[in-house]
Design a protein around this nucleic acid. Structure first.
Lengths: 142, 142
DNA sequence: TAATAATTGAGATTAAATCTCAATTATATG
DNA sequence: CATATAATTGAGATTTAATCTCAATTATTA
C-alpha cells in the first residue's frame, strides 16, 4: 500500500469536495512544498507574483486556505502574532526563541499520553492541540 | 507581607515605567477586572463608550496593551482567531470546545515538570508556554 | 463539443489595530 | 501652590491582513 504523495492527497481532497483541479492551485501547492520549514503567506505571494505564470494575491489567499482545509498545512502564531505556516508532517509541538525567533519542533510521547489522561479526567475528548514554549534557544541563552 | 492588589500592581508598573496614572487607565483596569472570566476587547470598548466617563477606542486599545505589558492580562486565540483576554492568575492551560467554544482552564504539575525536562534536553530555557487542546467538552461530546 | 458550474484577477472593501496631532492632563520642581 | 515639561487623550485617518465583488475565464460533466 503506497503512501499517497502530497499532490495526490490534495487532488483527492479537491475531488471529494467537488472543487476543480486548477493550475493555480497546483502551482501554489508546489510553491508551498518548495518552501523551507516555516513560511509566511507573503513569501508565496511574492513568488507567485513574479513567477512565469503570475497568480494573484486573492488566489494565493484562497488556495492557501484550501490547502489548509485539506489538512496539508497549518500555521502557528509567531512572537509578533504573524501567521507562520508549515507543511503538516507528523504531529509535533514548538519551542520558540524569544530572542532570535528560531522555531524548534519537538515531539514527546509521554507528553501526549499525559495530555490525554488530563483530558479524560475533565470529561474532554481531545482532537488536536497546540503547544508553544517560549524561551531562549541554545545560542541565545548565554 | 500583604499581597499587592491588582490595582497596586498596576500602579507600581506604571511608576516603574515612568508612565502617568490616569483616570482612563484606572477605569479601564476596573472594567477589565469586572469582566467575566474571558472577554474581548470590544466588550471593554462598548462599555467605555457608553460609560459615565466616555473613553475612546484608541485609549482602550492603548491601555489594554499597557495592562498586558504589566503582566496583568493575556490573551489566547479562539477557534475563529479572535483575541480572547483573561486576567492572569496562576498559570494554567486551556481546553477549547470546537463545538460550543467553551474554554476550560486546567493545570497539571506533572505536565509542567515534563515540559521543563523536554526543554532541558533541547538546551532550551523555557520562560512561558501556551497549550491549547481542542476537542469536545462534556456536553458536546455525546 | 456545448452547457454549467467553479475559479480567477483586479481592485474595492472590511475589520482589527495603530498612528497622527492638536488639545488636555499628570507630574516634578521651585 | 503655580508653572513648565512631558505624557496622554480623542477623533478621525491610516495601516495591514484578509476577504469580497463581479465580469471574464476555465474546468468539468454530459
Amino acid at each position: 500500500m503506497k503512501k499517497k504523495s502530497t499532490h495526490e492527497q490534495f487532488v483527492a481532497y479537491l475531488r471529494s469536495e467537488g472543487k476543480n483541479i486548477t493550475p493555480e492551485r497546483m502551482l501554489i501547492l508546489d510553491e508551498v512544498l518548495a518552501q523551507k520549514a516555516h513560511f509566511k503567506i507573503d513569501d508565496i505571494i511574492d513568488k507567485m507574483s513574479c513567477a512565469e505564470k503570475k497568480i494573484s494575491r486573492a488566489t494565493v489567499y484562497r488556495s492557501i486556505k484550501t490547502i489548509e482545509n485539506a489538512g496539508l498545512i497549518k500555521y502557528i502564531r509567531s512572537i509578533n502574532d504573524e501567521k507562520i505556516y508549515e507543511v503538516v508532517k507528523k504531529h509535533h509541538d514548538h519551542m520558540i526563541c524569544e530572542s532570535c525567533g528560531k522555531i524548534i519542533e519537538f515531539h514527546d510521547n509521554d507528553l501526549e499520553t499525559l495530555q490525554d489522561a488530563i483530558c479524560e479526567s475533565h470529561g474532554f475528548v481531545p482532537q488536536r492541540h497546540t503547544m508553544k514554549i517560549f524561551g531562549l534557544c541554545e545560542k541565545c541563552k548565554s
